[in-house]
């Protein structure tokens, strides 16, 4: 995958090791020092015109290309900490694992507890610890995909770091971002953190079993979210009691079928 960009594979470590960034500064530092004497100190303008996240987007395209070739349906779950990402994943896995091969990439700043919870279902999971980093990027995810030995026509779930802010800006190569909002967080969250609701295609409104005990206004929350993203699909669920989960499972199944079908059609053409 990203080895095609000339990126080594040793600088990134998963499952307990520390995660390093590229050590590009070293080589560049050596270069500039070397050239110093021969360059005249005359100031000039250099056009750059490059998006700051161009590198990430490039890695994301590699991931997306690979997934498309293999017919793998990848979904990136994003939410604030504790909205129920791992609980939803476990229930989704239980419902689908006898039909479809599934793998999971878990992102957290520390610990591999979520990966352990996923592996307890029998599904392979790679934990990425971002340390101080507050989001997953496409490069880390590409390496995690290499470690997972993914099957074609499978499902790949990414549980992003619990953070309603910057995972919105990082394309991982997924087919869809799915944002989870739990009813204990308040109906104003879509307006306070609009980027995430703008980037997502589906919103799971979770912990609906708690609605009788709260003053959370469901239609108001959905209205706020659709102001930011009129096309947003909303599914009301309780991961713990199971309500609404069938609709979510059906959505996953149809995405999975489409991803697999595209590959079959392409093979038929060839």
């Amino acid at each position: 995958m990203c080895t095609t960009c000339g990126c080594g594979t040793k600088h990134i470590h998963m499952d307990g090791d520390i995660l390093y960034h590229h050590e590009y500064a070293e080589t560049v530092g050596g270069h500039t020092h070397h050239m110093h004497a021969s360059v005249i100190n005359e100031s000039r303008r250099v056009r750059i015109e490059q998006a700051i996240l161009a590198k990430n987007n490039h890695f994301a395209q590699h991931n997306r290309h690979y997934l498309a070739q293999q017919g793998i349906f990848m979904v990136n779950l994003v939410s604030s900490p504790g909205s129920g990402k791992t609980t939803i994943l476990i229930e989704t896995i239980k419902a689908l694992q006898n039909e479809i091969p599934i793998a999971v990439i878990e992102g957290d700043q520390q610990t591999d507890q979520d990966a352990v919870r996923i592996r307890a279902t029998g599904v392979p999971a790679v934990q990425i610890n971002t340390g101080k980093g507050c989001h997953l990027d496409a490069h880390m995810v590409g390496h995690a995909m290499e470690k997972l030995d993914l099957q074609s026509n499978s499902l790949l779930f990414v549980e992003n770091v619990g953070n309603l802010v910057c995972p919105a800006a990082f394309d991982l190569g997924e087919a869809h971002k799915v944002v989870i909002l739990s009813v204990t967080e308040g109906e104003d969250k879509p307006l306070k953190y609009p980027d995430m609701f703008h980037a997502a295609d589906v919103m799971l409104l979770n912990k609906c079993d708690l609605l009788p005990y709260l003053s959370f206004d469901v239609s108001c929350a959905i209205d706020f979210a659709r102001r930011i993203n009129p096309a947003l699909q909303v599914i009301q669920i309780s991961a713990i009691q199971g309500s609404g989960l069938q609709q979510w499972i059906d959505w996953i199944k149809s995405g999975h079928q489409q991803a697999a079908q595209v590959v079959m059609t392409e093979k038929a053409i060839l």
């Binding site: 590229h22 590009y24 050239m35 750059i48 590198k55």
Partner: peptide
């Protein structure tokens, strides 16, 4: 916030340009 990541990405773009375009100091 991811401003640290953005700053690192900016530096990477600048350092790659330094090699490609032969400069040793960025003023602005």
């Amino acid at each position: 916030m991811h401003e640290m990541t953005l700053a690192e990405q900016m530096l990477q773009i600048i350092e790659e340009a330094a090699i490609a375009q032969n400069f040793t100091q960025v003023k602005t």
